[in-house]
Nucleic acid binder design. Structure first.
Lengths: 340, 340
DNA sequence: TTGTACGCGTTATCAA
DNA sequence: TTGATAACGCGTACAA
């Protein structure tokens, strides 16, 4: 039997109300003597309040949910830490849910979190189509939700995301500035919104430079090494590209592998750009030029917004934060000798 | 106002007991008619049971805690997934807590989890000294705890860990077999038990080969790239080692960086071995020879044990699982030309 | 300055 | 086959 507020009350010869007051610092007009005595007994009996019971009354669980595709994708640990560090500051615990981009798991996570009465949810729904999302989320409009990485174009939710079109534009522009023309593009899965926006940026940069668009240079990947590897093989064997823009670093890693197998030198024969600036891409030789998204900060920001909405009790304004991506040049990109 | 079991009962013209029975599949001797009607209303009103209230009675929250040092260390995402996947199978949610190896945060995490009445805890206390741990955990002997990565030598807790002495032995033996004699060793922080065991393995292998032990070749790192980098600089500049055994892959990455800066060729001038077999070390050129620990499996196993203890209700046997590390040879190690 | 008593949403016990 | 009611541990309005 765990010790309860009742046990403390008995031992201290006071009512449970008094004990409750001590616990919740409601000691406005209370005798110092009883306060001290209660505190002592609490120590002595090693009493810890039962949050479950408390939240029955207060309607607060001091708990938030965090839904992501897969913690093993090195993009997400940073994000998770950002969220958790803010949560800790607010004395909140966080439930972590991995969905593997599976719509079933997204919805079951949402349901589970709701049944656990979390006070809010940070949702990295990067890979979900809009319609299904809305459908899934409509379940629980009462709990504040902040979308991360790519928001729905929906007034319903706050969101924090990177300007993906700009990311796509920056990477492509960098390659064009280096005189590249045959620039391969490896996108994420077709159904993600990130992919669409990043691709738009790519197209825009080409257009601006009056480089004709060749659809054979645009291949669809999976945001994982494998996808980058296979796409790169095709681009290198069939299309003779001099540069590849992979829509995330993991796929760029795959490009490195393919290049290595084919005896293609980076950056001598091939320039490579990624997106994310994953920490461990410094390991690559040569270092990978990439577009940085401040992932940790995204997590922090999303959590911050969420807690503001929680505190304001649901009737707060929806917020959309747009983060700027920045180009980080390393040694995987190199100017093409200008052809005469 | 959320819909409650009461609302359902009203609308269905039955008692809350009946509704409760439907929810909990206790429909043994129940008329199909009422069952169907209740089910319909539940659908219609989009009712979801309140787990908080339920756990007041059942004393079960269907929630476990997972405490780790830092999710950004690429060792842990695998472990987290292992735990979470098993948890999901049991319809459990998991609270994630990062401690940064800070004893304060470990204890506050423990306290927070306990206040949230988790049914069990998986604790990766890799970096905590035995005494403080016991002190911290003694708080809550009622909740099953499974230690991971390195167990306390304590009958109190179940644990899953890798035979770290063997890991240290295997890596060193491999280098010795390649004729290396001046083998540098970069350990983890001195206060971790892993470090002690791995170092023992290193020493044992040297002894077996009758290679005299040189304490200058043993440096203490931090399990991060930075530590590996600095230690490698010292070993290469001052000690002329022909091989370095880093006690995890991250530090081996640091060794690569140092070698690259100093113009030292791997494996030509220097052989390198790590521990962990982090997924992205395939990216390194040359590929890193390392000792694999099946991290995902460790997570799974720990969670499995935890759930067995939860189901058995606390009076179960303590279990200690010892996982075998295996050597994975890639291209970072090379035989030394035998000196004549 | 302190205490009594009710209610939060659910399950379990016993009765009908 | 179904229902009334007591718990679970706590916070709080109101009373003393």
């Amino acid at each position: 039997m765990k010790t309860t507020i009742k046990d403390i009350a008995m031992r201290a010869n006071v009512s449970i109300t008094t004990v409750s007051r001590v616990i919740n610092q409601k000691t406005d007009g209370m005798s110092e003597t009883t306060r001290r005595r209660v505190l002592e007994i609490i120590q002595e009996m090693n009493y810890h309040p039962n949050k479950i019971a408390r939240s029955m009354i207060t309607k607060r669980t001091n708990t938030i949910g965090l839904i992501i595709p897969d913690i093993r994708n090195p993009f997400f640990p940073e994000l998770v830490r950002g969220v958790e560090d803010v949560a800790k500051k607010y004395h909140y615990n966080v439930f972590l849910c991995n969905t593997d981009e599976d719509i079933e798991r997204e919805e079951s996570s949402l349901r589970l979190l709701r049944e656990n009465h979390v006070d809010g949810i940070v949702f990295a729904n990067s890979y979900t189509s809009k319609d299904r999302m809305s459908q899934g989320l409509v379940y629980k409009p009462t709990t504040p939700i902040v979308l991360i990485d790519r928001g729905l174009d929906d007034e319903m939710f706050s969101s924090v995301y990177v300007d993906n079109e700009k990311a796509g534009y920056l990477g492509t522009k960098h390659l064009i500035d280096l005189q590249h023309v045959k620039i391969g593009c490896i996108t994420g899965p077709g159904y993600t919104q990130n992919t669409q926006y990043r691709l738009n940026g790519y197209l825009k940069a080409l257009e601006e430079a009056s480089i004709p668009i060749n659809k054979d240079l645009i291949l669809s990947g999976d945001f994982r090494m494998e996808g980058g590897y296979h796409a790169a093989k095709i681009l290198l064997n069939r299309e003779n590209v001099t540069a590849i823009f992979a829509h995330n670093d993991l796929m760029a890693f795959g490009v490195y592998q393919a290049a290595s197998e084919l005896g293609v030198n980076i950056p001598g024969d091939l320039s490579v750009v990624g997106i994310d600036n994953i920490k461990y891409n410094q390991l690559l030789n040569p270092g990978l030029t990439t577009i940085e998204q401040s992932v940790y900060k995204m997590g922090e920001t999303a959590a911050q917004i969420l807690f503001e909405q929680i505190e304001e009790g649901g009737e707060s304004q929806r917020v959309k934060v747009n983060m700027e991506p920045t180009l980080i040049v390393r040694n995987s990109t190199k100017g093409l000798p200008s052809m005469c």
